[in-house]
Design a binder for these strands. Structure first.
Lengths: 220, 220
DNA sequence: CTTTTTATAGGTAAATTTACCTATACGATT
DNA sequence: AATCGTATAGGTAAATTTACCTATAAAAAG
């Protein structure tokens, strides 16, 4: 068991000021921890880190400019010693596998009680990790199947620019011929691209491409 | 200009306890307002309203059990005098038209400063409404075109159960024949349903149906 | 008790997609 | 220099969808 520092320095990264203020207010009741840095997104955090170095970052996933996933990657690369607790919403459980691999130390649903937050902080500082019941269950379940998001990311990453261009046009309800005309290529070529997309994302129909594009947020 | 009550009673409805605590902490600096009710979703709020009646509700949109839209409807029906300020995230601006019609008095992005929150509360209590710049701009723009969400809702509402059933199967990449087999109807009938869906949602292709289904969240 | 909506089903021709292949050219990587 | 990935394009047959119609029966709405 690692020894705790006398004062745990914490950074809160969330684009909602109200949320950040809430965290500061809550943690002010605890003498051995203090919020030393507030940032509204990953970029903001990285800038401020040049002046202040916290022990632990409470990190939101969804943020403008630079989201939690990108931030985790950047943090672990440049400041490998800083611990990261990801703050999750209801619908973001699917990202945890991806984030675990990227180096997140714990996950905490935002709707948890104050005590849980403090517990999580102690746990990560001492043991290097914190997973609550929900998350643990998700991990166990994850073994048996549904690694949705990371899978999507990998697939999306394997697509070429041209393929994504075509996917977007497909989603705009263009036919192969129309796409060909727009891109100055033959409808055949569009068809070939689609075939390649099929194999890359593991689908057999155009509908599958559209569903994939929406789920992987290639389009909104 | 309406006279303010000596103490503005406020309800905070959000499923994230940290957020609620943040609001309580912030408003505690102001002597003329007080959070008298905290609820984690609309159902919870309606239950608690039987005991305490606030002047104003700060209402999150995305919540489990009963979301902000449903809650607004229910509130305006049963307690028409209670003012409602909707707390929005970045991506929820599209809902404002719908919510305005349903009786929301104001909209407030969650990432706004404390002063803005207090301003909004005073404005709604005195003038009956509050719209900040972003929202106002969205309304102006809205006149010239993109009333996305409410339009989607109306279209979605016009669909029959059977049609939605078929839409879901379409999204699962089934062909007309397969859908027919699953539903024990002819592929022709499926085709007819699709034609009807086309006219209802204003699309001409199956891809359009899928895009609609995703955007209207008929499926996730 | 009409009228409308919904769900059902058919016909046919045209358009489109899909499933198989093959093949060339270019740029980057090894 | 050889290989790989990417973008390009073709052929053809089968499958599928789409665009037009018509039509019936049951249920819901007026």
């Amino acid at each position: 068991m690692k020894k705790l520092p006398p004062l745990i320095k914490i950074a809160v990264v969330d684009d909602h000021q109200l949320f950040r203020v809430g965290v500061v207010a809550l943690l002010s009741d605890y003498n051995d921890m203090e919020v030393v840095l507030e940032a509204s997104n990953g970029k903001d955090l990285l800038t401020q880190l040049k002046k202040t170095t916290p022990h632990l970052v409470l990190l939101d996933i969804e943020m403008p400019e630079m989201n939690g996933i990108e931030t985790t990657l950047a943090l672990k690369k440049e400041y490998p010693d800083i611990k990261i607790i990801i703050l999750t919403m209801h619908n973001e459980e699917e990202f945890i596998f991806d984030l675990m691999n990227k180096g997140a130390n714990g996950f905490l649903p935002k709707d948890k009680s104050v005590e849980t937050v403090v517990d999580a902080i102690y746990s990560v500082m001492q043991k290097g990790y914190y997973y609550n019941d929900q998350i643990t269950q998700a991990i166990i379940k994850g073994n048996s199947g549904h690694l949705k998001a990371p899978e999507l990311f990998n697939k999306a990453a394997s697509l070429t620019e041209r393929e994504i261009e075509i996917i977007k046009l497909i989603c705009e309800q263009k036919t192969n011929r129309e796409i060909g005309e727009l891109l100055f290529i033959s409808a055949r070529t569009v068809d070939n691209h689609k075939t390649n997309i099929f194999t890359k994302i593991g689908s057999k129909t155009t509908i599958g491409i559209v569903m994939f594009a929406m789920q992987a947020k290639l389009i909104s």
